[in-house]
């Protein structure tokens, strides 16, 4: 059970490069960084200051140790997140800055859509609401997974568990 678009809502989110694509608060849209802390209702994203600097660098490093980062807490509900997952999801070298460049190149969407449809069925069945669509950037081993924040509303340690659809224990 590797980290795939299907397992992402149940998998570890800490450390993943993430982008806020939609939010109730417009000022949060476009935030880009790594998830560092997850709570039941929020994700804390470590972004670089200023956020544009990372894109100018072309996704090179801009990591925590340069002292130019800050941690922004984003509520899960009311936000839509786009996670960038690689084949080796624990690969921390992949700069999250590449996400913005590759996000608009999506020629491989059609070949991916059939698997997305099938996976949408079982992914959505485990938690009723929320939509998941997936895109795979061509040529790179990076897949962008868009997840509605309401699907992630759970205690961090309990998201992995599969105890059916019912909210009752």
């Amino acid at each position: 059970m590797a980290l795939t678009p299907e397992t992402l809502p149940r998998h570890e989110l800490n450390g993943l490069p993430v982008r806020v694509v939609e939010s109730d608060d417009e000022s949060r849209v476009g935030l880009e960084g790594r998830v560092v802390i997850e709570t039941t209702n929020t994700l804390s994203i470590e972004v670089c200051v200023p956020p544009e600097a990372e894109r100018w660098n072309g996704g090179v490093a801009a990591d925590r140790d340069d002292g130019e980062s800050r941690v922004v807490m984003v509520p899960k509900s009311g936000s839509t997140f786009e996670f960038a997952i690689t084949d080796d999801a624990a690969d921390l070298e992949k700069g999250s800055g590449t996400a913005s460049k590759l996000a608009d190149t999506q020629p491989a969407e059609t070949e991916r859509s059939d698997t997305a449809d099938r996976a949408d069925g079982d992914a959505a069945s485990c938690r009723g609401d929320g939509s998941t669509n997936r895109r795979r950037a061509a040529g790179e081993d990076v897949a962008y997974v868009t997840v509605d924040g309401s699907r992630l509303l759970s205690r961090p340690a309990r998201r992995t568990e599969t105890n059916g659809d019912s909210p009752w224990q």
Partner: peptide, 11 residues
């Protein structure tokens, strides 16, 4: 998934 999460959290 849980075992992978533990490994990732370790890293």
């Amino acid at each position: 998934v849980a075992a992978e999460r533990i490994e990732r959290l370790h890293e």
